[in-house]
Write a protein that binds this DNA or RNA. Structure first.
Length: 645
RNA sequence: GCCACUUUAGCUCAGCUGGUAGAGCAACUGAUUUGUAAUCAGUAGGUCGUUGGUUCGAUUCCGACAAGUGGCUCCA
């Protein structure tokens, strides 16, 4: 007999060799039907795998993250079985569970598949699921495994086997399909009741674009149809707040084939948002001791050789223009110009920290397939600044930048993000990163310490640094789940030396400053794209392109409305009168759909009492108010940059 | 850049197996002068992304190119 300890601390005795599924059955049949996998001594196991020793046991169901991912991983195998049935000779690479569903990468031997194939595969998967086949685990010797896949001619699984040893190799079989897999899996295919194959994509083998491209099929499954329907509905809802849709509906920006891919033209509404953001940045930066500068969008090749952009970043730059025997590049970053500003006049330690800020326009030649609405474009406006400081000043300056983020995030109510310490990768020194192994480690430690001391939670990721140093990136997600860096705070130990930037110390010697590159508001493009989604288009009053819409009940009240408009405009409020010959219901509806924060209905009563019949977007009628009373209220809301709800 | 898909009026979308296109909203005109999420009527608007090919005939079939979308690689 063995002792099985449950999450609540209860201990029950079972015969050795009992499976988690048996345990579940001993509790209730209903529970047994729901069990997908089990956590045995903290490891996720097949629910059917025998437990031979004392163990702590947690039964995993659809409600557990590990239960879901086991379910999805098993679904990937089910899909593979369907694929193999329909396309004999297919070779498989890997098929993991992901945040939402699963995928499987495969080599279809040059065969192209399309959406019709997905439908056929779904149908096949449903048939196979109904067979209710068991997922059977088998431990297997390496030699035998190699033999199996050699006979099958599957070089991908053979590649996987290279890194595995005897004793850690298992095969899983369900129905007619056998796969090299560490598991675990759900007990039987029958619990997969609702299946949706989402898309086909190319995926480079091992994620390297020099390798062959495999076919990847994404799918998702659920234990019942209702949850699948809900999931698909949720995706539909998310699309409604997609910044590309809102950007069009609210006339924020436009693009044009004749202008070029990834080149945003900001319409008047979008431009208002830009100007408000810049106002916020300029106020904040002035307060924090930054000086503003303005620099050109191009520079000669020589500067980008000095900066390291041409050796390390050339792929992301537009090709040069030649004139008068010189090559000029459109800039992809503002830093070199700012370094020249630093170098323009001699600096002493008394001038440091020297902080220069510019809403800098940069151009990046992003590959066409990477462009994405406002989030990934080829011309961007960065909330850029560079801080030149001594080593001693670094920690305080770096922290001050982090505080600036947090201050901004509070204003915008941004709370779903991850701070990421992006480190270099040793293998790519001299290729992607400047070749200074010691300095990398030193500055990475410096940043790590600042973050730890400030008590700001962060994660560390290899091979994500800038070419000139490590950075803290703030990661956010678009409504369709794509991850982006919203803001960034970077250390640069390299360009100061390349540009021979120096300051005179107290001892009258020369030192090279450390440089911080920072963009707490990221770029206008990505930040506004993010804000549109974050607010679902319902921007707070201070950012709203149109803040108040005055809606006359009939044309008799237009002169009064225009007078109110004059008053509000004089105070700096963005206001318009809906003078159209329409009924009030329609004017309200359109203002609501246009996401105008305040609507002022004006009829006989309001005009007689010098009032406005107010509505708040999304909330409906909030009662009548005197014009100056309303003006004071909205001015305060704007001044305080209140977030609305 | 690579894989898959999409592209019809300003917007959202119909258009079965090839016989040169339709709706709703928006726009314009007129009527109505309106009290908290769509007043009624009329008018105008499209060489069906571009370009080759197949065909008596192409929005429809095939190819190329462009842009967009979902991924991969890459990134603020």
């Amino acid at each position: 007999m063995i002792n099985v300890t449950f999450p609540d601390g209860a201990v029950r005795q079972y015969e050795a060799g009992v499976s988690a599924l048996d345990v579940a059955k001993s509790i209730s049949e209903g529970l047994a039907r729901k069990v997908l996998a089990a956590s045995v001594n903290g490891q996720v196991w097949d629910a059917t795998r025998p437990i031979n020793e004392d163990a702590t046991l947690k039964l995993l169901t659809w409600d557990d993250t590990d239960g879901k991912s086991t379910f999805w991983h098993s679904s990937a195998h089910l899909m593979a079985e369907a694929v193999e049935t329909m396309f004999p000779g297919v070779k498989f690479w890997v098929g993991p569970a992901i945040d939402r569903g699963f995928y499987y990468d495969m080599d279809l031997g040059g065969k192209q598949i399309g959406e019709d194939d997905l439908k056929a595969l779904e149908k096949k998967m449903n048939e196979l699921a109904k067979q209710n086949n068991a997922y059977q685990r088998k431990e297997i010797a390496k030699a035998e495994a190699i033999k199996y896949f050699e006979e099958k001619g599957d070089e991908y699984k053979l590649d996987l086997l290279q890194n595995l040893n005897d004793g850690e190799i298992t095969f899983y079989t369900q129905g007619q399909f056998t796969d090299l897999c560490r598991g675990p899996h759900i007990p039987t295919t029958g619990s997969i009741k609702a299946i949706k194959l989402m898309s086909i994509a190319g995926a480079y083998w091992k994620g390297d674009e020099k390798n062959k491209q495999l076919t990847r099929i994404y799918g998702i499954t659920f234990p019942n149809q209702k949850e699948l329907d809900e999931y698909l509905l949720m995706l539909e809802e998310a699309k409604k707040r997609d910044h590309r849709k809102l950007g069009k509906e609210l006339s924020i920006y436009t693009m044009d084939d004749d202008v070029g891919q990834g080149l945003i033209m900001w319409l008047p509404n979008g431009t208002i948002i830009i100007e408000e953001l810049e106002k916020l940045a300029k106020e904040t930066e002035a307060e924090a001791g930054y000086k503003r500068v303005v620099t050109p969008h191009i520079a000669k090749e020589s500067m980008y050789l000095t900066s390291g952009h041409l050796p390390y970043y050339a792929d992301s730059m537009y090709p040069p223009m030649e004139l008068e025997g010189e090559k000029y590049y459109l800039r992809s970053m503002n830093c070199p110009h700012h370094h020249k500003i630093f170098a323009a006049e001699p600096k002493s330690y008394r001038d440091l920290p020297y902080r220069v800020a510019e809403y800098g326009t940069v151009y990046r030649y992003e590959q066409s397939g990477e462009l994405f609405g406002l989030m990934r474009v080829r011309c961007l406006h960065m909330n850029d600044a560079h801080i030149y400081c001594t080593k001693e000043q670094f920690a305080a300056e770096f922290k001050a930048v982090n505080d600036m983020y947090l201050k901004y995030f509070k204003i915008f109510g941004i709370d779903k993000y991850v701070m990421r310490l992006s480190l270099h990768s040793k293998e790519k020194l001299g290729v992607k990163y400047v070749n200074e192994p010691e300095l990398w480690l030193e500055t990475e430690a410096l940043v790590r310490d600042v973050m730890t001391e400030a008590g700001i939670p962060f994660i560390e990721v290899q091979d994500e640094a800038a070419f000139y140093g490590p950075k803290i990136d703030v990661q956010i997600w678009s409504v369709i789940g794509r991850e982006f860096t919203l803001a960034t705070n970077q250390v640069d130990f390299s360009q100061g030396r390349s540009f021979k930037l120096q300051y005179t110390t107290q001892d009258n010697t020369s030192e090279t400053p450390l440089i911080i590159h920072r963009a707490p508001l990221g770029t206008h493009e990505r930040f506004i794209g993010f804000l549109l989604e974050h607010y679902a288009g319902k921007l707070p009053v201070w950012l709203a392109p149109l803040q108040v819409k005055i809606l006359p009940i009939s044309e008799k009240f237009i002169p009064y409305c225009q007078e109110v408009q004059r008053q509000l405009r004089k105070a700096g409020v963005r206001v318009e009168v809906d003078e159209r010959n329409e009924k009030i219901g329609k004017k309200i509806r359109e203002a609501e759909l246009g996401k105008v924060p305040y609507m002022a209905v004006v009829g006989e009563r309001e005009m007689a009492e010098n009032k406005l019949g107010l509505r708040r977007q999304g909330k409906g009628d909030i009662g009548a108010q005197a014009v100056d009373e309303f003006l004071n209220m909205i001015l305060e809301e704007i001044r305080e940059r209140k977030s609305g709800e």
